[in-house]
Design a protein around this nucleic acid. Structure first.
Lengths: 134, 134
DNA sequence: TATTGTCCGAAAACTATTATCAGTATTAGT
DNA sequence: ACTAATACTGATAATAGTTTTCGGACAATA
């Protein structure tokens, strides 16, 4: 059985959560590190990683699947999808309630016990889209 | 403008492609490295990485999104989905023709030029599933 | 079969993330 | 408030996966 751990509300954890909730981007640990350092200049990158993982365990933030190899974090926990720009890597929210309802079909086909799925859109964001004329 | 590169068909590239197509798993670069070394004992891991990337550029193989942090490769390029075991990490094919047809809707919502999506299922594979009784 | 330049193997470099550790600071209990 | 227990921090080292570098090798072309 899992031992109950008691978490403390440190200044670092507090600021990390606040800043992640404030920004509308979906920053990497490193990006958030630079944001948080404006308020806590002495914070360590390891502390950012540690707290992001802990906040994730607590269900207070989301971890986006590292589709391109780097992990991103999201302070909004209400269900929504994401779209990633293949040019600059930025991630935007997609408010769209789609219930795929494919779990049962996939389970039948594969023999797996299906627990969920990762759905992320890809495209080119408005900033990266080339102008119509040169 | 991109300069056209001409690729050579080296023994290494040939074996890498053959072996990737032969196995039904979706190996990581490292796993494929060990497989290929049975035929080419002197091959380098860097060569495996280089060729996998090159074959991907040519559209001869697929790169699976590194959802759990490691890249996996697929020698089957006909469209299909994947399901990943959250316990052991193995990836299986899901033969399922679903046309989500969400691109237009997502484009309207986000302003992105939508080029595609990543859909990958998660679950527990039969081998990792706990027995019904102990 | 000579020339060209892509490709190879070995090793170093790089990037993202996690682990280690001694000292710090939050929390619970007086 | 004061104190004790211990979760947490910053700094740094370690790890894992992948990419780059570089001199020599070899496939393609004429």
């Amino acid at each position: 059985m899992q031992v109950e751990r008691k978490h403390r509300m440190t200044r670092q954890r507090q600021v990390i959560l606040e800043e992640l909730r404030r920004v509308k981007t979906h920053p990497t640990a490193d990006e958030l590190y630079f944001i948080v350092r404006q308020k806590l200049p002495r914070i360590s990158l390891a502390t950012v990683y540690r707290n992001l993982d802990l906040l994730y365990q607590e269900g207070k933030i989301l971890k986006l699947p590292a589709v391109d190899g780097v992990m991103r974090f999201d302070g909004t926990v209400t269900p929504h999808y994401h779209i990633r720009c293949t040019k600059c890597g930025r991630v935007s929210d997609v408010m769209l309630d789609v219930d795929l309802n494919l779990e049962r079909k996939v389970a039948r086909r594969t023999g797996y016990h299906v627990t969920g799925y990762v759905l992320e859109f890809e495209g080119v964001c408005p900033d990266c889209a080339p102008r119509t004329e040169h």
